Simulated scan of single mutants.
Amino acid sequence: MTDVKDKVARLRRAYAPHEHRPLGGYLVSMSSYAAVTAALAGLVKATGRQVPERPATADVVLLGIATHKLSRLLAKDAVTSPLRAPFTRYDRPIGSGEVIEQVRDQGSSTRHAIGELLSCPFCLAVWVATGFTGGLVLAPRLTRLVATGLTAVAASDFLQLAYAVAQRAAEGGGRDDED
Rank of each mutant, 00 (worst) to 15 (best):
G95K: 04
S156W: 14
L159N: 02
L145M: 05
E101V: 08
A139R: 12
F87E: 02
L118P: 01
V128G: 08
R111F: 00
F122E: 12
L161A: 15
A169I: 03
F122M: 13
F158W: 15
S156M: 06
S119G: 13
C120W: 08
L118Q: 07
T88E: 10
V165N: 07
A125V: 04
G135Q: 07
A85K: 15
P93W: 04
E98T: 04
T151P: 02
G131P: 06
L124P: 14
I100T: 08
L83E: 04
P93A: 14
D157N: 08
L145H: 07
S156I: 03
L117P: 04
T110A: 14
R104A: 02
P140Q: 05
V153I: 09
T151Y: 02
P86V: 01
L161P: 00
V153L: 05
T151A: 13
V153E: 10
A166M: 11
F132E: 03
V99P: 01
D91I: 05
G131S: 06
R141F: 09
V137R: 06
P140H: 11
A169H: 05
P140S: 14
P121K: 09
S109Y: 03
V99K: 05
I94C: 01
D91Q: 13
G95P: 03
E101L: 06
W127Q: 06
R104V: 06
R168Y: 11
I114N: 01
L117S: 04
G135E: 10
Q102Y: 11
F122Q: 12
L159S: 07
A152D: 03
L124M: 15
A164V: 03
